[in-house]
């Protein structure tokens, strides 16, 4: 297997993804299988080949910086899991 149990836990940590004990082995097996499939890319000669990020040649698209009406605060907060006094409510960042 190309991924170790510790690597799976490390990736989950980086992605801020909680995983249950029972899932760790499953993800380790499945992700390893997929990564093994990726190994075939190393056979491709990409010497002097530039990378492609987008299929259309668009760069630095900007629009005029004109002020415009934004949504009402109530509308924006309507989907907030926790709101208070017109603000998003969050857990303490600094304990």
């Amino acid at each position: 297997m190309s991924l170790t149990r510790d690597q799976v836990l490390h990736i989950a940590k980086l992605a801020r993804m909680g995983v249950e004990e029972a899932e760790i082995e499953k993800f380790q097996r499945q992700l390893s299988q997929i990564l093994d499939h990726f190994a075939r890319l190393s056979e491709v000669d990409t010497e002097n080949v530039p990378p492609t990020a987008y299929a259309v040649p668009l760069q630095n698209v900007a629009r005029d910086d004109e002020p415009r009406q934004s949504y009402d605060r109530d509308k924006v907060l309507a989907n907030a899991p926790m709101a208070e006094d017109g603000y998003f409510r969050v857990r303490a960042v600094l304990e």
């Binding site: 980086l14 993804m17 992700l31 890319l41 491709v44 990409t46 080949v49 530039p50 492609t52």
Partner: peptide
């Protein structure tokens, strides 16, 4: 699975081997 795959492919030490390589083959 996909978030974890992507996180791994972009993580330090693997970016060149996975993401950059894939972008070159994309070309």
């Amino acid at each position: 699975r996909r978030i974890m795959l992507g996180t791994y492919a972009l993580s330090a030490g693997y970016y060149d081997a996975y993401y950059l390589k894939a972008q070159k083959v994309r070309t």
